[in-house]
């Protein structure tokens, strides 16, 4: 029996084999050809696991997966949270030769001043898209989601992501993030409860597919994901609503206790190469935070309406990380919404 137990423990321990890299990534966010290219150039075998929200990634890392992955791809505010919790390892500029490729505006970001733990992956926005075959009316407001016209009722998919739903709801009502004001929180709670009967489903990874298949006529969605839906034949229009939208930047972070730290650095450096950053952009249809990508971009991506908002739109906001007491209130609203 002892032997058996010992055997299972050995089986369960992480493999320290050379030439491995474990990536914890969003679903459908990196082209297989790019992974193959990296593997061919370096001889490193890449394994990719996917998550569908920043929070679930954090939860699973805290549930014992830290030390199993080398890099993860959290959004801006989550980089800050992870850094505060000591979940990130840092690197020096010498270890990252391509660090200088980062666009200046993304170099000294508040969530990682001077880029010690992270590099930009892609940035984009979150708002919503409407199938124009189904509804031709005015869609300039977030009311399309939260107080939808009759044609769209019961045909809306909402991201199954607490943060994004609550922030867009707050923008619609014109209240700040991480507020502790009771009236504002109550208003948010009541507004969401009133909107929910008009929604068909909650889902993040299905957000594109339901628009393409016609299961939903409108949906909360990321700009690039919406561009992909359009490319796959759905007549969807992505909206930069007048109340504002969510802006985010996903970053590749070096995780603490990464089993293959050197390979992780190679991978991050690889992604900072404009050719490779452009490959990701061409695939995911967002925007790279790296200089010199323009010559390698597909024309359709460069000029897509999802990536080139019209002049004069309301600027987007980044998500903020609330403190524990405030977060509890937002958690309660979310549970209320889904109960």
């Amino acid at each position: 029996m002892k032997k058996l137990l010992l055997g299972t423990c050995l089986l369960a321990s992480p493999a320290f084999a050379q030439g491995e890299l474990k990536v914890y990534h969003w679903f459908e966010y990196i082209p297989q050809e790019l992974v193959d290219k990296f593997q061919a150039e370096t001889g490193i075998t890449v394994t990719i696991d996917t998550f569908d929200s920043n929070e679930s990634m954090l939860a699973s890392l805290k549930a014992g997966r830290l030390g199993q992955y080398d890099v993860a791809v959290p959004a801006d505010f989550m980089v800050g949270i992870m850094a505060n919790d000591g979940m990130l390892d840092s690197f020096t500029p010498e270890e990252m030769p391509n660090l200088g490729n980062i666009e200046p505006q993304w170099m000294d970001v508040p969530f990682d001043a001077g880029r010690k733990h992270s590099i930009p992956y892609q940035w984009g926005s979150t708002s919503f898209s409407v199938n124009r075959d189904v509804y031709q009316g005015d869609i300039s407001s977030l009311a399309t989601l939260f107080d939808p016209p009759a044609e769209l009722r019961g045909k809306i998919n909402v991201l199954d992501s607490q943060n994004e739903v609550l922030i867009l709801g707050s923008l619609y009502l014109g209240i700040p993030q991480c507020t502790q004001d009771r009236d504002q929180l109550r208003a948010l709670n009541d507004m969401l409860l009133a909107a929910k009967p008009h929604w068909a489903s909650f889902g993040s990874d299905i957000a594109k597919d339901v628009l393409v298949s016609g299961d939903a006529a409108a949906g909360m969605i990321y700009n690039g994901f919406s561009a992909k839906a359009r490319a796959e034949g759905a007549n969807v229009e992505y909206v930069y609503p007048k109340e504002g939208h969510v802006v985010w930047m996903d970053n590749v972070v070096l995780l603490k206790d990464a089993p293959n730290r050197d390979n992780a650095l190679k991978f991050m450096n690889f992604l900072l190469d404009p050719v490779n950053a452009a490959a990701v952009t061409n695939y995911a249809a967002y925007t790279a935070g790296v200089t010199g990508v323009a010559p390698y971009l597909d024309e359709a991506i460069k000029t897509s309406p999802e990536n080139n908002p019209p002049e004069g739109i309301t600027p987007g906001v980044f998500a903020q990380a609330c403190d524990e007491e405030t977060q509890k209130l937002y958690d309660a609203i979310w549970t209320n919404l889904k109960k």
Partner: peptide, 19 residues
């Protein structure tokens, strides 16, 4: 099972699925 494997510090993977 998740709580158990986490609490005893066993890395989850092939071995934990097996047992």
């Amino acid at each position: 099972s998740l709580i158990f494997f986490t609490a005893i510090g066993l890395t989850t993977g092939y071995g934990t699925i097996l047992v």
